[in-house]
Amino acid sequence: MLLKTLAELPGVSGDEKRVREAIKKEVQPYVDELKTDCMGNLIVNKRPRKGKKRSPKVMLAAHMDEVGLIINGIEKSGHLRFLKVGDIDNRVLISKPVIIGVENIPGVIGVKAVHLQKPDERKKTLKTNQLYIDIGAKGKEEAEKMVSLGDYAAFDTKVKEMGERCLCGKAFDNRAGCAVLVELLKRELPVELCAVFTVQEEIGSRGAITAAYTLDPDLALIIETTSAADFPETKGIKPVTNLGDGPALTLMDQSFISDGKILAALRAAAEDNEIKYQYRRFTSGATDAGNISLSKEGIPAGVVSIPCRYLHSPASVIKLDDFYATIGLSEAFLHKVSEMGGLNR
């Protein structure tokens, strides 16, 4: 399964190469054009096979990068110091395995054994500069042979099926979105697709800025992964989305207010095709949509997200039904756009 392959690859913001290569290989036979830009965005073009009239140019975007770590120092003891790339809660880092650099060097994020800690030490969260990665090296010299400053480290989690049609793994945010995009590229659709697998979303949506500038599409649909907080210890009103309730539509977030016509078209597409959907009931966070919609003279945009529990952790959970429904909804939306002949004001 492509989603499984993609989710297991390391691809921290700025180091998306392996994800990009895997996607390139997968979509090559189905598309008209394929290129990378200087940021590392993978830009894929596919024109409709049927029909002559000019079709709207739709930008589809999903980011390839995931949150992770970057090595910024090596201790005399051979332990690696790191910084976080993107937003990670320190509390999920402790005692997790990672893989580092292009050679996939394994390492673990260690912590003093509980026996060695004073009682009140355990009550405090650890800061990033109190944590380190152990690769088993005996001293700095040996570590330097295996790892260089600036190497990236990603969580090392294999995808597992669990429960009822659920998957557990890392980086579903946003390899799940990438997998949706790949699937759409394999289908015959009535609009001109510019699919962009973007880079550096987790550190300020930077790849989307340059890609949107280059493409200047008529409209854009962003496929994302968003928090599902339908679990204990969060208050009733804030589940954001629910796992299994279908793709989530964004009304607004920190960087973006959804275009009214796109939102209406998404809703109509879902209702016409009896696809269960929900709203993202939360307005914090940001996606590539913010920057894309403000590119040049403004680009009408919308966001469809796959609900995902425990986002930005080494063990996140999605439900396959949501994943397939997101493919279905995106496809239905693109047909809708074609029927409407675009969405011009």
Partner: peptide, 16 residues
């Protein structure tokens, strides 16, 4: 439009 959420309308209109 959308000044209160980040000077957004001014950005695209000035570009145009």
């Amino acid at each position: 439009v959308q000044e209160e959420v980040g000077l957004r309308g001014a950005k695209t209109s000035a570009y145009r």
